[in-house]
């Protein structure tokens, strides 16, 4: 049996691959409580990676899609609405399966795009890994959900603020950057916090679906499932992963709360938009 310290040094970074710590995962009766804590904790690295990158990129894409959705031109708002409907109306679980089975059909050598003077080779083999392909699906998914929130917020930007901006002679991008966008973020932020929380929770689905976990490096819930399969005891690993996620959720609430305070700093206390934890599980 390993000591607790050995478990941590062996498994705390195991999720990154075989080269980090022990090659093999603990098996059968050899599994100790510390193994479970260390390995599930190391899986959290990937949850944070998926969530952080998806939220960071999805944020800007969502702004663009929300603007397109809000535009008067049907060439812009119809595709945007269709995109939002497709990704919000179907289960994320099925989206993972669909995109994975589409990615494996791409040629392994990559797609060559002739540009005249040179040829651009798109590396497609990476798309079948969870770290790239799964992330791609998560980005599209959070883009659609956040775009819907931002679109709602765009529609409720105070009329007076827009008129004031015009009275000051602002127009076009200046007006957007200084008046529309900050207002949109401020209004959407409480629900966007919820979106970030549930995106983080749904990173547990990545390895549960089609994307394979190479070298047994997966996210926290992948390891929890591994332990339950090995020990046939759901009363340790699942509560552990739940506890880790509660901690992660609290961290997100803290970070987003700071941003919310900054976005609302010009408003009196009682007019500030407040965050309410509104679980809207499963996508």
């Amino acid at each position: 049996m390993r000591t607790c310290w050995e478990s941590f040094s062996g498994y705390a970074l195991r999720a990154l691959g075989r080269g980090y710590g022990e090659r093999l995962l603990p098996r059968g009766t050899d599994i100790s409580f510390c193994d479970q804590v260390a390995l599930i904790g190391s899986g959290l690295i990937w949850n944070i990676y998926f969530a952080a990158v998806a939220i960071a990129l999805g944020f800007f894409m969502a702004t663009a899609v929300a603007l397109a959705r809000n535009s008067a031109s049907p060439w812009l708002w119809r595709p945007a609405a269709a995109f939002i409907f497709t990704f919000r109306g179907s289960p994320l679980f099925i989206q993972f399966f669909f995109f994975y089975s589409a990615f494996v059909l791409l040629p392994r050598a990559g797609i060559e795009i002739p540009l005249g003077f040179t040829t651009l080779t798109l590396q497609t083999s990476a798309l079948t890994t969870a770290q790239v392909g799964g992330l791609f699906v998560l980005i599209l998914n959070t883009t659609a959900y956040s775009a819907e929130l931002f679109y709602g917020a765009l529609k409720s930007v105070p009329k007076g603020d827009l008129e004031a901006a015009e009275a000051y002679g602002m127009s076009g991008f200046t007006k957007f950057r200084r008046v529309v966008w900050p207002n949109m973020l401020r209004l959407a932020w409480p629900s966007y916090t919820n979106e970030a929380i549930f995106l983080t929770h749904s990173t547990t689905l990545v390895f549960l679906s089609a994307f394979p976990a190479r070298q047994q490096s997966g996210e926290a819930f992948y390891y929890a499932r591994y332990f339950v399969d090995q020990t046939f005891n759901p009363f340790v690993a699942y509560p552990l992963v739940a506890a880790f996620f509660v901690a992660l959720t609290l961290a997100i609430v803290a970070i987003f709360g700071r941003i919310n305070r900054r976005l609302n700093r010009h408003l009196p206390q009682e007019r500030r938009a407040k965050f309410r934890f509104r679980p809207q599980y499963l996508r």
């Binding site: 929770h201 547990t204 549960l208 819930f221 499932r225 992963v241 996620f245 509660v246 499963l282």
Partner: peptide, 12 residues
């Protein structure tokens, strides 16, 4: 139930 990731419950 609302505070824990749903998927954990479905398998648990």
């Amino acid at each position: 139930v609302r505070g824990v990731p749903d998927i954990v419950f479905f398998l648990f």
